[in-house]
Simulated assay, not measured.
Amino acid sequence: MSARTHPSTRSTAAGLDTRLPWWALALPVAAFIVLFLLIAGPGKAHAIGGDPAVGHVLERIQQTLSL
């Protein structure tokens, strides 16, 4: 059983009219800006003097993955 296809209401004589909603461009631009600011501004980042065991665990994981 075949289904009927309805013509698009946004079709023009030259072809389909491809319009994006405003958020389809705004969200990727906002995400790019936030990530760029996180990468570009590491001057205020400070290392936390925490438990040295965590550092040893991370070193072991890095050694294991580099094999």
Rank of each mutant, 00 (worst) to 15 (best):
A47L: 14
G50A: 07
A14C: 04
V54I: 15
H6E: 14
A3H: 08
W22G: 11
L16N: 10
V34E: 03
A24E: 06
D17E: 09
A13E: 12
L37W: 02
T18W: 12
L25Q: 06
A53F: 00
A40L: 11
A47I: 04
I48L: 12
V54K: 00
A14I: 09
D51M: 00
F36E: 04
A24C: 02
V29W: 00
H56I: 12
I48N: 11
S11N: 13
G49P: 08
A14N: 08
V57D: 02
A53C: 00
P28A: 05
I39A: 12
P21H: 05
L37V: 05
S66D: 03
A14V: 07
T9Q: 15
E59L: 07
V57R: 09
G55P: 02
S66E: 03
I39Y: 12
R19D: 07
F32D: 03
L37M: 05
I39M: 07
L58F: 11
T5F: 13
A45V: 02
F36K: 01
G41L: 11
A47C: 06
S11D: 15
V34N: 07
R4L: 15
W23V: 15
P21I: 06
D17T: 08
G43N: 05
H46R: 09
L67M: 11
A40T: 09
P28V: 06
P21L: 05
I33L: 10
D17K: 07
L38M: 13
P42D: 08
T12A: 14
P52Q: 00
V54R: 00
I33H: 03
A24F: 02
W22I: 15
L58S: 06
H6R: 15
V29Q: 00
L20E: 01
A30N: 04
E59W: 04
S11V: 11
D51N: 10
V57A: 11
S8F: 07
L25N: 07
R19T: 11
P28R: 03
P42R: 04
L20Q: 02
A30K: 03
P28L: 02
Q63T: 12
T12L: 11
L25A: 08
L58D: 10
V57E: 02
L67W: 13
L16S: 14
E59M: 09
A47D: 08
L38D: 01
A26L: 06
L38I: 06
S8R: 15
A40D: 13
A47H: 07
L20Y: 03
A31N: 00
S2L: 14
A53N: 02
F36C: 03
T5G: 14
I33N: 01
L20D: 01
R10F: 09
A31Q: 00
T64S: 10
R60Q: 10
F36R: 01
Q63P: 01
I39W: 13
V57W: 08
P42Q: 04
G49A: 14
A40F: 12
H46L: 09
T5E: 15
L16V: 14
M1V: 14
V54E: 03
L38Y: 08
